[in-house]
Write a protein that binds this DNA or RNA. Structure first.
Lengths: 201, 201
DNA sequence: GTCTATATATAGATAGAC
DNA sequence: GTCTATCTATATATAGAC
C-alpha cells in the first residue's frame, strides 16, 4: 500500500481516472514530469498503457490534470482559511503547514520545485497552467503580507510583492536542498528565518 | 555563435572534448540532464553521435565531467579570493557575483537547481559527484559566515552551518522562480534580504 | 473501459571501416 | 578521432477487438 497524497487519497474507493492522477502526482513530485511514463503508471496501477491513454489521451493532459489538482487543493485551503478568520501571521503559519506532507514524505519536493526546473522542457499548455497556479499562490500570499503590514503583524521594509518572491523561493529551494541532504529540519529553520525577516527586515 | 559559458568558452581554439563539455553544460543548465541527448549535442557540435561516445562512452561520464567542471571553477574562485584578502562581507558579495552569468543568461538556472530537482533520477555516481560539489561550496560558505561572526561583519543568531542552508536554498529557489517569471531583478533583491538576515537575524 | 497489437520516434550504446 | 551502420530498449500514441 502506498502513502496517501495530500488530500487526494489512493484507495479502492477511487475511480480509475482519479487514481491515475494520484499516482502520476506522486511520480512527478518524486522524479519529475519527464522521468515518468505511462509504462510506469501502468505497472503500478495494474491496467495497460492503452487504458491510461483512454482517460488522458496525451501525456500533457495528465500533466495538466495534476497541476489543476494542486491548484484546486490550494483554492480549498484559501476558502477554509477565510472562514476561520485568522490573523496574517496565523495564515502564514497555515500556509507553511501545507508543505508538511512534502517534508514528511522524504522523496518529494514541491510541484513548483520540480516543474520549475523542468519548465523549459514542458509543453506550452503545461507552462501556462503552472504560471496560473503560481500566480494564484503569489497573489494570495501578497495579500496576507499586505494585511500583516497594515495590522502590524509584520514590520518589513519594501513591497509585499517582492517579499512574496523571497519567501516562495526560500521554501522551494530549501525543500530541494533538504531532499538531497536528507534533512527535513531545515524546512522549519527556513520558516523561522522567514518570520524574522518579516518582523525585522 | 553561442554565448560563452562561465570561464569555459566555446571557440575554435577549444578541443573537441572541451567543446562537448561546454555545450553539454549549457544544455544541462537550460533543460536538465534527462532532457538533452547525444543527438542534440551532435547536431550542435557538428560531429556524429558515435564520435561523442568516443570521448564520453556513457552519458553519465559526460554528466560527471560537467559537474567536475563547475567544481573546478569553484575551487579557482576560492583560490583567487583567498589571495585578495577580502572581508567576509566582501567575500559573500563575490560569491553572489559568481551567479551573475546565470542571471544575465535568461534561460539558465544554477546547476544545483536543475540537478537537485532531477536528483532521484540521476545515476548514482552523478549523485555522489553532486554531493561532493555541494559539500565543497557549503563548507566554504560556512567558514565565511563563521569568520564574519567573529569579525563582527555579521550579527545573526544560530549556527553558521544552518544559515548556509538558508542562503543557498534562497539563491537556488530565486533563480528558478525568476526564470519562470522572467524577472532577474529578484536575484538582487534576494541577496539584499540575505544580507539583512545576516545583519539582524 | 480495458485489452492486444502495432506504429513511429528517439535514446543510449557498440562494431568495425577509414 | 570520426564515420556509417546497427542494436536494443523505451516512450508516446493509435487502431480495433472484446
Amino acid at each position: 500500500m502506498r502513502t496517501p497524497q495530500i488530500t487526494l487519497h489512493q484507495s479502492n474507493f477511487m475511480n480509475t481516472k482519479d487514481q491515475i492522477v494520484s499516482i502520476a502526482n506522486r511520480m512527478i513530485l518524486e522524479k519529475g514530469y519527464n522521468s515518468f511514463s505511462y509504462q510506469h503508471l501502468s505497472a503500478e496501477i495494474g491496467i495497460k498503457k492503452a487504458s491510461i491513454h483512454y482517460h488522458f489521451p496525451a501525456k500533457h493532459d495528465l500533466g495538466i490534470a495534476v497541476i489543476q489538482f494542486h491548484h484546486e487543493s490550494f483554492k480549498n485551503f484559501v476558502t477554509e482559511i477565510k472562514e476561520k478568520g485568522k490573523s496574517p501571521m496565523q495564515q502564514l503559519d497555515e500556509f507553511f503547514g501545507t508543505y508538511k506532507h512534502i517534508i514528511t514524505q522524504k522523496n518529494q519536493i514541491c510541484l513548483a520545485g520540480i516543474l520549475g526546473a523542468e519548465f523549459k522542457t514542458l509543453p506550452e499548455n503545461m507552462q501556462e497552467e503552472m504560471q496560473s497556479y503560481f500566480e494564484s499562490r503569489r497573489k494570495w500570499l501578497e495579500k496576507v503580507l499586505a494585511d500583516g503590514l497594515y495590522s502590524g503583524d509584520f514590520r518589513f521594509t519594501g513591497q509585499p510583492k517582492d517579499m512574496v518572491f523571497i519567501i516562495m523561493s526560500t521554501l522551494q529551494g530549501i525543500l530541494q536542498i533538504a531532499r538531497t541532504n536528507q534533512n527535513p529540519d531545515y524546512f522549519f529553520l527556513a520558516t523561522q528565518k522567514i518570520k524574522n525577516l518579516l518582523l525585522n527586515g
